[in-house]
Design a protein around this nucleic acid. Structure first.
Lengths: 180, 180
DNA sequence: CATTAATTTTAACTCGGGTTAATGTAAATT
DNA sequence: AATTTACATTAACCCGAGTTAAAATTAATG
């Protein structure tokens, strides 16, 4: 048995409409979610009211709040649907139980965590070493189909700039391109 | 047996002088390292020659290049001693073998990866949502003793600003503080 | 279809941070 | 002690991005 089969077997199916939340920043959510279809955003809300997007979550992804699930603290971010989305929900306790019993599940969890860690490391690299314009160019290259499904506001919030800033970046890029 | 005991038992001790490298960006290093004493920096070198510090690595930390070890690719960063440092070196293959055999080791690996993922997630948050000044203020609060061991240049490279920029941030902060 | 609401672009102004270079200060080496 | 080398601060100038506000475009809804 692998992790995905475990979700199929033990997961509870949730169907969420566009704009609905799976959980909110501050919640003590103790579940992981496998995305069967749809699109979501994980985002931070600051005291100032500003919103920043941690990640877009797509079909076949597994998502959960590590700080809520593992540290048993309040979730540091909210998870909200950008499109109608179907998920399979599984409590962490169930996952942990299977992990202890089946080595292959434990290995899948290690695998999942490693991929997650690598993804976060890559994003850290981009923020640490690259300009907003370079980050946008990378995103455009790696995920054009994702960008098409998402508003400019959300892309900006993902890059860590304002919508106005992103608009200027796009303008600069297209001018440069047509120059060459 | 736990992970630290495994390092004691199977690890090979390395003693490195200040400025020596453990591995370099581009190397195919296949090991994890437990830091017994000393201080290191993991850093990216860009084609432009600019350096950015991914993380400082302190006593009791475990470090390795995930992309080198797990993806079997070239390491994306270099690891270099800021002080004389002693390490215990263990090949990933050995770790994986013990992980398969002993559940407690597998659990420790999951634990290690989770903590690493949480750390990277926190740093992602800081870059995504906070200004350089806010990041510096946080660092000053959370790790004053670390800052005392590290040069301004390295703190700047860790925050993602230039030494000149950091100097201005410090000036701004002390002026603000003395105003209140 | 028309109106309202949401999204995107453009402009004017401000500010943080990069760049370069000069100055000051501390360490290291001979 | 003297000189070189590394590290830190300061100043002048420039540019990218934030802010606010207005205009333009697109989408949603009665």
């Amino acid at each position: 048995m692998d992790l995905q089969q475990l979700f199929q077997k033990e997961g509870k199916q949730l169907i969420k409409k566009k704009h609905e939340h799976v959980f909110m920043q501050g919640d003590h959510d103790y579940c992981f979610y496998f995305v069967q279809s749809g699109l979501l955003k994980g985002y931070y809300t600051l005291e100032t009211g500003k919103e920043f997007i941690k990640s877009f979550v797509q079909s076949q992804d597994i998502i959960g709040s590590l700080s809520a699930v593992y540290l048993e603290k309040a979730s540091t971010f909210s998870l909200r649907c950008l499109e109608e989305t179907t998920l399979l929900e599984i409590p962490y306790a169930v996952l942990a139980r299977y992990g202890k019993q089946y080595h292959c599940i434990a290995n899948d969890i290690i695998d999942l965590l490693l991929k997650f860690a690598l993804k976060k490391e890559q994003r850290e690299f981009e923020f640490l070493c690259l300009s907003a314009q370079e980050r946008y160019a990378l995103l455009l290259n790696s995920s054009p189909q994702l960008l098409a499904r998402v508003t400019q506001n959300d892309i900006a919030a993902y890059l860590g700039v304002t919508p106005v800033g992103l608009s200027r970046i796009k303008q600069r890029l297209t001018h440069q391109v047509t120059l060459t």
